Each structure stands twice: as structure tokens, then as C-alpha cells.
Amino acid sequence: MAVKRMDNMGIVVEDLDGAIAFFRALGLNLEGRAMVEGEWAGQVTGLGDQQVEIAMMATPDGHSRLELSRFIRPEIVADHRTAPVNALGYLRIMFAVDDIDETVARLGALGAQLTGDIVQYGESYRLCYVRGHEGLLIGLAQELG
């Protein structure tokens, strides 16, 4: 049995509305919002009785999704958002964009900041990392040519 696809990546946030606005500015589409709660949900996560508000965001091509989650119950127990890029665990999400300079400017208006510089990788890509809403690390890649 092989993996058929990756359905989504999940990110836990404190401010769901702000995260939705940030990822909309990046170009993702809001597919829907819902409350996920109760023992059944906790059986999946191992957290017991939980209440989580989620928003599903989709890339414009419809192939990738990002699930944003705001935990109401139980409370948040750890925060990895300010870890440096060489920390263990999940690093970042990389998005392909058509104009990296315009994207950085648009996200900068929402408080995003470059972690370094926009750099060119050979003749293939322009790349950068930004710390976006709530310090989330986002990679941007503009294919050249």
C-alpha cells in the first residue's frame, strides 16, 4: 500500500482570523471553518475531550491544503514558533509564488519580516523565509525562466 497524496498540513494558531487573513494575502482560499469537538476528536489526537476551531485553506491550484487550528480546550502547552531554522521538528512550509518581491511586500504590510535576504539559487529560483502571522516560518520560492 502506497501513499495516495498529502491531504493537508496543520498549524496551530492563537488568532484564527488573523491567520486566515495572512494566508489569504499569500493567495490561499478559505474553503471553510468548523468547530471540531468532543471525545471522538480527542480519540484521534490523544488529547481527550477537546474543542478546536479550524479553517481549511487551499492553494489556488486546489492540490494542497493548510488546516489552521485554534485550540479552545485543552489549553496550549508548548510554543515552537520562535525556534530557529535549525531546530528539530517541522521547519516551515514552502510556497511557490509568481513574484517574490511583491509577495514579500504584501505580507510585510501584515507584519511579516524576512528572516534573512531574498537570494537567488543559480538560474533556477529566488528564495526567502519570512516570519509571518504569530511568527510562523514561511518559505517563498519564485521559479526563474
Results as ranks from 00 to 15, higher is better:
I11C: 04
A21H: 06
L16A: 01
I20K: 05
A34Q: 08
F23N: 01
F22A: 00
A34Y: 10
M9F: 07
L30V: 14
D17W: 11
V12I: 14
A19W: 01
I11S: 02
A25S: 10
D15T: 14
G18C: 09
G32I: 13
A34P: 09
E37F: 03
V36Y: 04
F23C: 08
A21E: 04
L28A: 07
D17T: 15
N29H: 11
L30F: 10
M6D: 12
F23P: 02
A19F: 04
E31M: 12
F22K: 01
E37N: 02
V12C: 04
M9E: 08
N8D: 11
I11K: 04
I11M: 05
D15F: 12
E37V: 05
M9K: 12
A25N: 10
L28T: 01
L28M: 15
L30G: 07
M6A: 10
L28G: 03
L16D: 00
L26D: 02
F23I: 03
M9V: 15
M35E: 12
L30N: 06
G32Q: 10
A34C: 08
I11P: 00
L28P: 02
R24T: 13
M6V: 14
R33P: 07
L16I: 02
D7I: 08
F23S: 04
G32N: 14
D15S: 15
F23T: 03
D7C: 07
M35W: 15
G18M: 06
D7R: 08
N8C: 09
M35K: 13
L26V: 05
V12N: 04
L28V: 07
L16T: 01
A21L: 06
L28D: 05
A25D: 03
N8V: 13
V13L: 03
R24Q: 13
G27H: 03
G18V: 12
L26S: 02
R33Y: 11
E14I: 13
A21F: 06
M9T: 14
V36R: 02
D7L: 13
R24S: 12
I20L: 09
E14M: 12
E37S: 03
R33F: 13
M9L: 09
G10H: 06
V13N: 00
D17G: 10
A34V: 11
L26I: 07
V12Q: 01
N29L: 14
I11L: 06
G32L: 05
E31F: 06
